[in-house]
């Protein structure tokens, strides 16, 4: 009996391995993921809320968390256009009724915000949970994500100030999103099965139909737009962005002052590579203070250079607000000195 069942088992395994394709063909490659591993990484939330964690958060709590962890980039009301495009604004009560943001077609919108575009509330939850805050992604607890989202929904006047968002009522909020009906998949740019076969889109049919014409294709050339003067010089010295030999030269777009600017750009480059520019602006605050603000604060202090060098190395907190500056032990001493001197000299 024992022997018989073993044979059955072997037979069953053999059948499985010769199924439509070769499951377990690559012996010794890969191992099963543990439930804890899958749980740790599988954090995505779909439009049908599959993957949504349990939890809740109030507008009020969201206001606190947002002020502490989000406002430095997004502004206290999600309105800031300093670091990223605005999160909030641009929709009306009527949009909430229709589910189509009218400003998108009327031309009244100066700029599209997150809530003028997004049609699925799950998207915002998923993104905050996986990628925010900017410098510490995945550090928010589920309740904090609910709270931040509740606060944003309140800013957008989708939910009242005493609202608490939770896994229980998020589907109801979905029905109030101002641009929930604003997406179309009727296009030919989805590379999978078309909608009529259960997929997306029209099956690859393009929306333009130019033809190959070789002679006298039109009566005249109609110029729609030419390069504006400011754009000609906005990208620096074009001569220096081309080889100094060959059939063409880069066109000289700047005068002799270009060399000086290029030297400054070198230090700016160092600051960028060292990660400084992720948090500091030249003039204004991003997460930490802008460089001109630093200069203003330290201008009369004779030991400013040495103090700032120490600060860049070891990190600090409290001088400019509660968000700490991380230590920068990975930077070379000489680079830190160059950067601090550059900042104190007006970063020009």
């Amino acid at each position: 009996m024992f022997r018989f069942s073993k044979t059955i088992l072997v037979f069953a395994l053999f059948s499985a391995s010769t199924a439509a394709f070769a499951f377990d063909k690559y012996q010794g490659v890969g191992r099963p993921a543990t439930p804890a591993e899958v749980k740790a990484w599988d954090i995505d939330v779909r439009p049908d809320f599959k993957g949504l964690p349990k939890g809740s958060g109030s507008v009020e709590r969201g206001n606190e968390v947002f002020e502490e962890k989000c406002a430095s980039c997004h502004g206290s009301f999600g309105e800031s256009n300093e670091v990223f495009t605005p999160l909030a604004g641009g929709t009306t009560k009527d949009d909430i009724k229709t589910g189509n943001v009218k400003g998108l077609s009327s031309g009244e919108l100066p700029q599209r915000t997150t809530f003028t575009k997004v049609a699925t509330i799950s998207t915002v939850f998923d993104y905050i949970q996986r990628a925010m805050p900017w410098t510490a992604p995945k550090s928010l607890k589920a309740d904090e994500v609910y709270a931040i989202l509740a606060y944003l929904l309140n800013l957008q006047e989708i939910v009242p100030a005493d609202f608490t968002l939770s896994d229980k009522n998020i589907a109801d909020v979905q029905k109030l999103l101002p641009n929930r009906n604003g997406m179309t998949t009727d296009h030919g740019m989805w590379p999978g099965a078309p909608a009529k076969k259960g997929g997306i889109g029209n099956g690859g049919k393009p929306d333009t139909a130019n033809k190959v014409c070789m002679k006298n294709c039109k009566p005249e050339v109609q110029i729609g737009s030419t390069l504006p003067d400011y754009a000609r010089t906005a990208h620096g010295e074009l001569r220096d962005q081309n080889r100094s030999f060959g059939p063409v030269r880069g066109t000289q777009t700047l005068g002799p002052e270009a060399a000086k600017k290029a030297a400054d750009a070198g230090t700016l480059d160092l600051a960028t590579k060292s990660g400084c520019m992720a948090c500091h602006g030249m003039k204004s605050k991003i997460v930490g203070p802008g460089y001109s603000e630093v200069v203003a604060r330290y201008k009369d202090q004779t030991d400013a250079e040495s103090r700032l060098i120490a600060k860049v190395k070891a990190g600090g907190q409290g001088v400019w607000g509660s968000i700490p500056m991380p230590p920068n032990g990975h930077l070379k001493d000489e680079d830190i000195t160059t950067l601090v001197k550059w900042i104190l000299s007006g970063s020009k």
Binding site: P47, L104, S105, T123, M183, T184, H187, M189, W190
Partner: peptide
């Protein structure tokens, strides 16, 4: 999945005000 980069960005605004999604 309607992820951020297929529901907020990488969507194509048309004159009608509709956005093409999953383009």
């Amino acid at each position: 999945y309607a992820t951020k980069d297929e529901a907020v960005h990488y969507i194509d605004l048309l004159p009608s005000g509709q956005h093409r999604q999953y383009s």
